[in-house]
Design a binder for these strands. Sequence first.
DNA 1: TGGGGTCCT
DNA 2: AGGACCC
Length: 408
Amino acid sequence: MGTKAFNSKVLKEESRPSIVQRMENQERQKKFEQKQKEVEKEIRQEQREALKQGIRPKFVTNKEKSLRMAEDEWALIPDQHQRTIVHIDVDCFYAQVEMVRDPSLRDKPLGIKQKNLMVTSNYVARSMGVKKSMWIKDAVKILPNLVFVDGSDLTHYRQFSTEISAVAQSFTPNVERLGLDENYVDITDIVGDYISPEYSAIEGHVFGDKEEDRKVLGDPCGCGCLQRLTAGSHLAKKIRQQILETTGITCCAGVAHNKLLAKLVSGYYKPNQQTVVFPWQAHDVMESLKQARSIPGIGSTTFKILEDLNISTVQELQNASLSTLHTRFDEETSKRLKDLSYGIDEGLVRKSGKPQSIGLEDAFKKTSKQKSWDLTSQTHQPAKGRLKQKVKERKPQRLKPKALLNLM
DNA sequence: TGGGGTCCT
DNA sequence: AGGACCC
């Protein structure tokens, strides 16, 4: 891969961590570690008490530890930000595809319709007051000369979508597709190649920066996430450029140490921009959401139950006790919900089944009772249709709490 | 607002 | 198979 620099913004002198700041950080780091030891001691004490009373000691996650340290300004546990995740989100996907297929649409206000609904619109239309998705009659009212393309045939969108994922996959196989227009890319394995003085400036936005005066930085954590995420911002830029070159499609990206934050932040500056968020900003990100419903992973049914418990904002969820949640959710989910509200997400990026030539046999077996899936319509890759990818190396281990249980 | 996807039970 | 989540 090329080592040439992109048009990276250079951090202003005064933004670079000075020696004084570094020393300050070290002190904070020391303080932090001290506090951490205290908390862990406390926890061990409680575990012993529990044992004495014949109760099975409660499992204490890193997150809970970090919660107990919350009064500390940097309630962060070192070495828990090891991954680097990029979330890629295509700008108004359907509209862009149509604009690439017919460039004359570029400068016109464009809407993509499916039945009575305009499912998306391009940015020209949006700049004229048309929303993302509206009833067609309403859209026409706002903008009579809105151009419509019918988007009920998804085949082109599918093609572009797999092409986009393929670009990401050319960097690393760890790509998870989410719908047609989103991809999670776990770049942990390759981000090290981009940690160098050449890439020491952050590419694109930092969450919360105001374009001009980007605050930052210093290294409040010290686990290396600052360097990894900075490098990740360059990789994200590179992936986006590659996508643009090979497909003509622009997209946004979010860079973070977990999927949740990467996704939440990827749309923060739109379109065709990218944003990185650091672990110590997790709270700010979560506070920028009002309703807990807008946390990915909290769907309508979960949210209804939460409302029953008088929990509807992110903050309320943060402050809810595990025992309250436990009245309506099982323990795992209760923890999961609290995790989410704090921007904590250990969910792994799961390789999406790129057909990768597994399942040929299955395909032949099933052809007899095939229900008119036209295998012929696919351009390359003969029999890739929709095989239940049962095989799927079950590599990505689900998180197993027991593994963390050693608290000696 | 609906069709298609994945994951979990 | 059904539920819950996502776009």
